[in-house]
């Protein structure tokens, strides 16, 4: 599932503490690039993708769900459960469409999306260790989940990279102001 991931951050309480003391909230934005691979298959549908943040001991926060939100009678929600780790972690307690979270499915290629701390679905991020999770499930296709651990606040220039094997390509997380 997760072939490799390179964690360029040193995690732990020390980082959180010094980060919080030295430069409170310098970085405010998570910049995420999700590559949706171009697949040579007989029947292709763009994947449903869920993006969420986990922190030990806290409820997961869903940041984005890309699905067929514009089908009549909300029929696109019938397949949300196929994004099964997200469905269990967070999706099944949500209402759809979800304001600021629901989005259209995206085409193959690099898809960029940003989340700002203190705003929208990301909300406030206290110092600590988090995991950003990206899960993709494709109609008549497969499913894949990748996990990107990061510490908050991040070190300047930190980047977390993971490469998917099947339904996701390269996924990277960087931090901006």
């Amino acid at each position: 599932m997760q072939i490799s991931h390179k964690l360029l951050l040193t995690g732990g309480a020390a980082l959180g503490a010094t980060g919080a003391l030295a430069a409170p909230a310098q970085a405010q934005t998570l910049n995420l690039t999700v590559n949706i691979p171009r697949l040579s298959v007989a029947e292709y549908h763009r994947p449903y993708v869920a993006i969420w943040v986990e922190k030990e001991g806290a409820a997961p926060r869903t940041l984005s769900v890309w699905y067929d939100y514009d089908m009549k009678n909300g029929e696109g929600t019938k397949w949300l459960r196929d994004v099964r780790q997200w469905w269990r972690a967070s999706g099944r307690t949500m209402q759809f469409p979800a304001d600021g979270i629901t989005g259209a499915t995206r085409a193959p290629g690099d898809q960029k999306v940003a989340f700002t701390a203190g705003k929208g679905p990301l909300g406030q991020l206290g110092p600590g260790n988090y995991t950003l999770v990206v899960e993709a499930a494709r109609e008549v296709g497969g499913r894949e989940v990748v996990r990107l651990p990061f510490a908050w606040p991040p070190k300047p220039g930190a980047v977390v990279r993971v490469k998917g094997a099947s339904e996701l390509g390269a996924v990277s997380l960087s931090f901006g102001k």
Binding site: G74, T77, W79, R81, R84, W87, G91
Partner: peptide
């Protein structure tokens, strides 16, 4: 056919 379902009408 399923035990875990999503949507509002299924």
């Amino acid at each position: 056919s399923s035990t875990v379902l999503s949507g509002t009408d299924n």
